[in-house]
């Protein structure tokens, strides 16, 4: 248990804060590097070794920019949106097990907690779209909500499939139950569907209709500048990390792996999934919103439902 130990709390808070910041720096760098290499470019090269400190430099620049709000904007919503988008991340990071012992705090319902908090990101996007009194913003916010309609049910059904196998909502126990065989091999269909769902959940290309640059300028964050703008990016990259960590726990056996220490394996698997998402982004063209809804309801939903029922009947027999 479950002791309230002040030192542990302080270490966890600092660890999570560090993880959120470091992850953003790393993933932004990885994304820009990958984008560059996939287009035969170098990507950032100037600041630090191969541009690794570029994100920090950008951050310093962004802090020194003026925060501008449109004169007709709903100021309360406008200011609240980036905060609402970012804050739940910190709670969602709480139950993620980096190894059997390294985690901020274990709860029996960690899986549900992370899934429930994932919604608040979309709430932040919606508030941004509504608050900024901009047509592009409004369209982006509405599209983000429309996205929930497509991915949420297949996502929950794959989660149900995993919970059936593991018999627990605790992320640590789910990871522990895959000591031998990873769920990705036992449930390849669920794994694929979950990957599609987390790309949808984090508003990443090819499902980034909420910020489609070619049609909506920048979608929900069109009117945001400086630090408020970077909050959305911090939130996006942190949600990517949380979603990938959840996928690692549920399908890739969490921290299990030979030779290397457990947390290293965990981080490696998470970053492999993050790289996969970045790879998707620079490969696939954006889909239309009706295509996304159709895919969610006509492909992902039936397949995940059938997969769930087959798993259930096999386990019942």
């Amino acid at each position: 248990m479950k002791d309230i130990n002040l030192l542990h709390i302080v270490i966890s808070l600092l660890g999570i804060m560090g993880m959120v910041s470091l992850n953003a720096v790393l993933v932004v760098w990885l994304e820009r590097k990958t984008a560059g290499r996939m287009q035969f470019r170098h990507g950032p090269m100037e600041v630090g070794f191969h541009g690794i400190l570029q994100t920090l430099a950008d951050g310093i620049k962004l802090v020194s920019k003026q925060l501008v709000a449109p004169s007709h904007a709903d100021t309360a919503l406008f200011i609240m949106a980036p905060v609402v988008s970012l804050v739940p991340i910190f709670v969602a990071m709480m139950p993620i097990p980096f190894s059997a012992t390294i985690l901020a705090h274990e709860t029996d319902t960690g899986l549900l907690l992370v899934i429930a908090l994932g919604l608040l990101n979309t709430l932040g996007i919606l508030l941004a779209g509504w608050g900024s009194d901009n047509k592009y913003g409004l369209l982006g916010g509405t599209r983000a909500v429309g996205q929930i309609l497509a991915y949420k049910i297949p996502l929950l059904l794959t989660v149900l499939t995993i919970v059936i196998l593991a018999g627990s909502f605790s992320l640590r126990e789910i990871a522990m139950s895959q000591n031998g065989l990873w769920n990705a091999f036992m449930q390849p269909v669920a794994f694929l569907i979950y990957i599609v769902c987390i790309v949808l959940e984090t508003n990443r290309s090819p499902f980034d209709m909420a910020e489609a640059e070619s049609e909506l300028v920048a979608g929900f964050h069109t009117e945001y500048s400086g630090m408020a703008f970077s909050m959305f990016f911090l939130a996006e990259y942190s949600y990517m990390f949380v979603a990938a960590a959840l996928a690692t726990v549920m399908f890739l056996g969490g921290w299990h792996g030979p030779i290397l220490p457990a947390p290293i394996w965990f981080i490696l698997k998470v970053y492999f999934l993050l790289f996969l998402m970045i790879w998707f982004r620079w490969t696939f063209p954006r889909v239309r919103i009706d295509q996304m809804l159709m895919m969610g309801w006509k492909v992902l939903l039936p397949i995940s439902l059938i997969n769930f029922l087959i798993t259930a009947v096999v386990l019942a027999l």
């Binding site: 248990m1 479950k2 966890s12 920019k65 905060v83 804050v87 709670v91 630090m227 408020a228």
Partner: peptide, 29 residues
């Protein structure tokens, strides 16, 4: 109690993490 305390602590820290840079930006921008 333990879960709740941890969540409250994280919420507080998250809010600070989000609000402090915004305030800082309004001061130096």
């Amino acid at each position: 109690v333990a879960d709740g305390f941890m969540m409250a602590a994280l919420l507080t820290m998250g809010t600070l993490f989000a609000v402090v840079p915004l305030v800082l930006a309004t001061l130096i921008a």
